[in-house]
Design a protein around this nucleic acid. Structure first.
Lengths: 333, 333
DNA sequence: TTGTAGGCGTTATCAT
DNA sequence: ATGATAACGCCTACAA
């Protein structure tokens, strides 16, 4: 059989007579040929069907966050019709110098998603640009050419803060995500640089409603870190409300309050951010801003699909929606 | 400059004079050449540097389980020196028939990890075998040729059950993982087929100590499903101990007990399985069997590395270790 | 140390 | 409807 006929039979892109098809298939079976080698195909086509996703932390930590998980799901859905799988890439490289790490430089990817923003992002973007690979950035700034998928963090955080203020609270503490790569927990002083833009933006939103509120940075977005932060906060002074920058932190804060003998929301109101299902938080339902995490991932995937298709991909800004739960109430007496 | 010199400069596999190196690099910069095209390289070398990981569920659900997450982390570490990234693959294909889904058939992978076992696994294994791609199966049976990474599920579950029996409990209920793909929650009757081997094996282990114990299957391994199952269990009868097949289920069970006004461990003992940190469970520390999830992933990665290296890869069976917490005690009066 | 040539397995183009 | 052929970009003997 000829090479090209075989190719045509397997790809189905050109009509083939049934007789030849049978012959080809028979020969293939006899020779143990199971279809085209994806490596050769991707060389020929200039496409590998793979989208890279770059994280900045150990996978084990990253995937603990339900928001990330949902985003990945949306992303996976959006790139599937593109024939693409998701390649997990760790943003290590600069580090200890294991020389053979897989990296953006050498991975056979058609496109890439950068999540968050790190000092190294600039560099990664340059690599991608040089390789001519489309990129989209989620929750980070990739410069003017790079489509970004964003959230109305400031407005959203302001909205929930205003809800709290509307209830009559004035003595409020803000519980924030880590401020920088060091992740040192503690009260945020004025001289502390906030490298994490999400933290900074949400903080600004909360301060739109409560300009003078003290803010305490957690080490990570988890229930346990929220609990630790909550203990520290309550140890110094008991506010009537705590505005947390994530649902997990809020959940931890609630535990800390319970531990201190406070009832939520009677003695202390707590708000979250994200709108994820916090496993095990029932019967509480957080008052929170729900973000469309799945859609964010999907939008990122669609933006990449557009770029690979030669079309333009616009940045997209998603809007959070306020969700009333049972963790906020008017301040006590 | 000649092609081969350039290749040599970029790969560094042959000594090159400094002068030429500079010339090559300069020329590359001028021409906008950023290094070898991974697609061509992988065709030539017969290696793509990518390891596929096949899941059977939506990523969003899969990664909710800390055990999976840790495993992925270990796997990522183990394949990194191999120069390999992890490609997420969903085991959909059989389904609705989106024709262009990425699949085991067409992904440019050097090796693959199959997690758990599904009806489709057999088929996937055949594809891999035909393509000559090394595979390892985690917690599933891939036949005699396929290395498997396993746990001493039965012995481990027996051990913790014996601990409970040793405390003097006789009225015990087992809280299990889903029994099959349908995931219907409910009491496990004798005629119910248990397709999920992990569920079956752990159940057998628990019955080694408590042959007659009733078992209730949860819909999934999560705190919320554990809570739902816990309510159902306590609704029919309050045992003195519950042996759960996962820490998340155990955590939910504890919540259900609290909700019913029972104290843990005074009124009811609860054991888990996995030894993961359940975010937000403090101050409880589960009595549980800790499994080396990270090591499991790492072992899988190393097995694949061995196979790719031409060496043989043996199956490996990990052992869980008993961990005493504060959720078990002698039964009340 | 540098250059030359062949082939990895496809797919697209073109001619039959 | 089918077959021949070139090119995708690289790596690696081997020759110079």
């Amino acid at each position: 059989m000829s090479v090209s006929t075989t190719s045509v039979v397997f790809s189905g892109k050109t009509p083939v007579s049934d007789a030849t098809k049978q012959k080809v298939l028979a020969a293939a079976a006899a020779l143990g040929y199971t279809g085209p080698d994806p490596r050769a195909a991707s060389l020929r086509l200039g496409r590998s069907g793979i989208v890279g996703v770059v994280f900045q932390d150990h996978l084990g930590n990253v995937f603990l966050d339900p928001v990330v998980t949902q985003m990945m799901d949306g992303l996976a859905d959006a790139v599937a019709p593109l024939g693409a799988g998701l390649l997990l890439l760790r943003d290590d490289e600069g580090g200890a110098g294991a020389p053979s790490e897989p990296s953006l430089r050498t991975a056979p990817i058609d496109a890439a998603v950068l999540i968050g923003c790190s000092p190294r992002m600039r560099e990664q973007l340059e690599v991608m640009q040089a390789r001519g690979i489309p990129v989209v950035v989620i929750e980070g700034d990739g410069g003017s050419d790079v489509p970004r998928i964003d959230l109305d963090n400031r407005e959203a955080q302001r909205e929930v803060a205003q809800h709290v203020r509307g209830l009559g609270h004035t003595d409020v503490v803000l519980l924030t995500l880590p401020v920088d790569a060091l992740r040192t927990p503690g009260w945020i002083t004025d001289d502390r640089q906030i490298t994490n833009p999400v933290t900074g933006t949400r903080l600004a939103g909360a301060r739109d409603a409560f300009p003078d509120a003290q803010a305490f940075a957690a080490r990570a977005s988890s229930i346990d870190e929220g609990l630790a932060a909550g203990r520290a906060i309550l140890g110094s002074h008991v506010p009537t409300a705590v505005i947390a920058q994530s649902d997990l932190l809020a959940a931890g804060m609630i535990r800390a309050a319970e531990e201190a003998g406070l009832r939520v929301p009677e003695d202390i109101s707590v708000t979250g951010f994200d709108g994820v299902t916090v496993d095990g938080l029932a019967p509480y339902v957080l008052t929170t801003m729900a973000q469309p995490a799945n859609d964010k991932g999907r939008a990122a995937g669609e933006a990449l699909a557009a770029r690979l298709d030669g079309r333009d991909a616009a940045s997209f800004r998603f809007t959070c929606t306020f969700r009333m739960g049972n963790t906020t109430a008017v301040p006590r007496g």
